[in-house]
Design a protein around this nucleic acid. Structure first.
Lengths: 228, 228
DNA sequence: TAAGAAAACTGGACCACGGTCCGTTTCGCT
DNA sequence: AGCGAAACGGACCGTGGTCCAGTTTTCTTA
């Protein structure tokens, strides 16, 4: 009975998608639509590119709501099944669309210049981190919102976990005695796209106030730890 | 052309649903399936009760995923359109299902005994509040998760806003100078059902640690404000 | 380098579910 | 009883997601 099922279709979407920390290869950020797909058949890679391009076109034309799996497939002249095979589900496609700026952010705080990157004291890096995420959010808000899938996958997504781990690391440096894992989740909660959307778009709060709120929050949580 | 549309279907689902603070009528908590629908036609009220009962049955039988609008309608011997007319959408139905415990919680911290209710110092009330929400979450986790609809409605839902407002009020008492609205959202983020699910079910974190984390968080944010 | 086989990919038919619409029925009031 | 408003119910639609038969690519072997 074990030979009838062909070893599971093997979810190979996720190959090359939002990987966690694989950016020790080159000096800077990937230059956009370069060669970043390691092991993908020629036609598959081609179709993947066409799908992403089509999806991006749909986004800027009709907004995130216009990114329908069938529409993307049609626009890319590809079968619907192909879209799902490549990206798993709608959420996966949207996340792939966000992947580029995601990596840019990761590179910035992992290997970039201070105060975001290494070199500055942790509390200062924390402050810069939040501001960077907030600024990035105001651009891609719609996409980021649409990319939030089921509630239980929100926190399990690779990009979110990278950010959370980074915050946790900085917190451990700033306040070694605390439960930094939990505090990191709290800080990340402040940067939830849905919250940002709610506060800026529905409550009409100015982004500057959000940034100030982040600074204040970091200071409170780190309890006036030495910032330099 | 203006007489053809009957003045808008008038979204009267929400009548009697998760209202904000209407609980000054009785001494204690509503006794379950009592008379809490003010203005609803007889057949409508009857069907509403049948629908809720059917939905609850489905939840305990197949879990929240089993609460399909068609299944609920069928189980209640009612047309599908009726379900939508009454509850607006799936989210509305799930929220109605949670309404009861929601009101119990609200009553507890609004008019109940200290330390949750009025009478205790604000910081202490904050601590008790978080613990209460965390404890409630471990029961209804699945339902609460399922009831989270679109990301942009998460923060706009009436129950969530009530809790947030309450936390904000306590914070204003504890730390008058701060941006308490923002800090309240942060604290509420810690109590996000999706986060609780992630930490307890996916990361295997013990609820006790979450509760301790809440206490710590409150203390950090209120900056050692007098707790008595 | 050519041929053959296995693995991987493709694409569209198919399904389930959320949500809408509108003709029909029931209720509550006078 | 009669009337208008409200509620009912199920046909209908769009979309996310699955499945599998057929095709293409790549690997192996000669």
């Amino acid at each position: 009975m074990s030979d009838s099922l062909p070893i599971l279709p093997e979810p190979q979407w996720r190959a090359g998608e939002h990987q966690l920390l694989e950016l020790g290869t080159g000096p800077g950020v990937a230059t956009g639509a370069g060669a970043d797909e390691p092991c993908l058949r020629a036609d598959a890679a081609r179709n993947r590119a066409r799908l992403l391009e089509a999806a991006a076109r749909l986004v800027e034309q009709f907004g995130a709501a216009g990114v329908t799996m069938e529409a993307v497939a049609a626009a890319a002249q590809v079968g619907k099944g192909t879209v799902f095979r490549r990206f798993g589900d709608r959420t996966g496609l949207l996340m792939a669309l966000l992947d580029h700026s995601e990596r840019k952010l990761q590179a910035a705080f992992l290997t970039g210049p201070p105060p975001l990157g290494p070199g500055a004291p942790p509390v200062e890096r924390l402050r810069a981190f939040g501001v960077a995420v907030l600024r990035r959010a105001v651009d891609e808000l719609e996409l980021q919102l649409a990319a939030e899938g089921e509630p239980d996958r929100r926190f399990a997504s690779a990009p979110r976990m990278v950010l959370s781990a980074h915050v946790g690391m900085l917190l451990r440096q700033a306040i070694p005695g605390a439960d930094c894992e939990l505090l990191a989740k709290t800080l990340m909660g402040y940067l939830d796209p849905a919250l940002i959307h709610h506060l800026t778009k529905q409550c009409g709060m100015a982004p500057a106030r959000l940034e100030a709120g982040w600074i204040d929050l970091v200071d409170r949580i780190t309890g006036g730890a030495p910032s330099h």
